[in-house]
Write a protein that binds this DNA or RNA. Structure first.
Lengths: 157, 157
DNA sequence: CCTAAAAATTTTAAGCTTGAAATACTTTGA
DNA sequence: TCAAAGTATTTCAAGCTTAAAATTTTTAGG
């Protein structure tokens, strides 16, 4: 059996995967840009802030900085800055952890919870309208395909 | 006919679209992070730089700054900075446009062309390996679905 | 010819992002 | 006990990104 690809099959396969990636990237960048723009115009906020609020919304008791950066798959230093600005906005508070003076828990304020609940509803409708070219059938096929894609080499799945 | 959704059908549909978006976003972020990391470690470069080189590689005669930012769907000011650093790296040159003293054409240098050709080959193999959980059949279905997704509201398609 | 509008690009200010270094605290184990 | 290793977080420097303002040059219309 040959160790080299004499028929060009592998090469064609690689090109198909590259096409998928470029298309995936284009779509997600378009949608992301649109969402960032709408968050900016309609809610005077940003996607990173929205993402942090979304993570905290799911955890009634708040999250440690490290848990937050793990959940969002971004660096610790990154979260520090975003949370700082959210504190300034009055959306979250930092609470010291009793028993560990290194750690901090971040929690939504009442305002943060209310504001996010509203934004999340509107956000969901944006997504639905952006993706309304998909038939219900296509949507089912797509969700199924995407759910089974475990990217090789990626840190957290 | 009722104007409100009394059966929750619309709501379920919206949630399905949101699932698709979250999954799409997760996958593209994972892949992007992996690609950034590899570009950094193996080629000491960044994704934005790679993207600019890729655009210029396709255009033998170079591109005006405005054409470049349109092709990459990023702001003009953004391209200014990236090109500046690529010039420092010796990968591209700026050439004044005869007949229009406002404009600049950016072109790959010989080094830029050679370096990019190599990186592009390796890059393609990264993508193929990251997506090798897809059967050829799934890949065909996916490429077809993605090709037909024209995001509503997005600037350029 | 002249001026106002348009076009190409750069600059600026603010925020996001990272990896690496620094700081502060806790745990482990001899 | 106490030093070394480990953990949680922040700080830092560099680069990416944007929208808006500024700069320079070209084009159009009177």
């Amino acid at each position: 059996m040959s160790l080299v690809d004499e028929t060009g099959v592998t090469d064609e396969r690689d090109k198909q995967r590259l096409r998928i990636w470029l298309r995936l990237l284009k779509i997600s960048r378009q949608m992301e840009a649109e969402i960032r723009e709408r968050l900016r115009v309609e809610f005077a906020t940003t996607l990173p802030r929205f993402d942090v609020l979304a993570a905290l919304y799911r955890e009634k008791d708040g999250m440690k900085m490290s848990a937050l950066s793990a959940a969002l798959m971004v660096s610790n230093g990154n979260v520090t800055g975003i949370v700082e600005r959210l504190v300034t906005d009055g959306m979250v508070v930092r609470v010291p952890v009793s028993g560990d003076r290194r750690a901090m828990i971040v929690q939504l304020t009442d305002k943060g919870r209310e504001d996010f609940a509203h934004m999340a509803k509107v956000h969901e409708s944006w997504i639905a309208s952006m993706l309304d070219m998909l038939s219900d059938q296509d949507a089912d096929v797509l969700v199924d395909l995407l759910d089974n894609m475990q990217i090789k080499g990626a840190k957290t799945q």
